[in-house]
Amino acid sequence: MYRNLYDTDPTTWSPQGRIHQIEYAMEAVKQGTCVVGLRSKTHVVLGALKKAQTQMSSHQQKLYKVDDHVGFAASGLTADARVLASYMRTQCQQEKYEFDEALPVGRLVADVGDRSQANTQRMGKRPYGVGLLVAGSDMTGPHLFETCPSGNYFEYEAMALGSRCQSAKTYLEKHFKTFKEVSVDDLIMHALKALKKASETADDEITAESVDIAIVGAEQKFKILSNEELQVYLDRLASEVTAAEGGEAPMDTT
């Protein structure tokens, strides 16, 4: 039977020049539920599909506020996301204490990248099993970043992570060129539509309970929408779908 000899810790290279532990961690990101992020000229919106472990449990948390100007959506190991949330909050508070200023989003993401990278180069450590979509606004405008367990990070106009994110990505790729000029409301609608694409492939419906949306902008502190606020957009989504289907009554989903 084949056994991989080179994947027991992140300090061992495979002869092909790969570090399997990092690649496994990158796979863990794909296990989480889908999260999307998209950016206009003024705002960034994050969206996430939430799962409840059982019918009796609450939905898991996918969106984290880091500071008034930044937050993230996580896909992968929630426990690791919580550790990173605490680290990022610390960094932001430190900057506020020292410089009376919000930590630029890019620098916060670089901090996370450095921390993640350190875990990939130490004996006895494991890489974080979580990918983040970091949304924030600073003196250079709104930003959307993705961070990886490998320590890599990238800036995007729009991005999706997690299981079945490909259909969401396809939606975003089709529309992202228009995002720059759209209103916040429309940006939220795009996020919901992208999430809908991802949930459809899993035969799930999106409801106010199973979706989280957060917005942030220059004049808008990072805010996770309440169920009531979210319902307004979901109703709009439902009516748009109905209109697209030729004015028929919405499908009975009970």
Binding site: R89, Q93, K96, Y97
Partner: peptide
């Protein structure tokens, strides 16, 4: 005051 603000932010988180 700075310290109080930090602690209160931590409480809020």
């Amino acid at each position: 005051h700075k310290r109080m603000k930090i602690l209160i932010t931590q409480y809020e988180h």
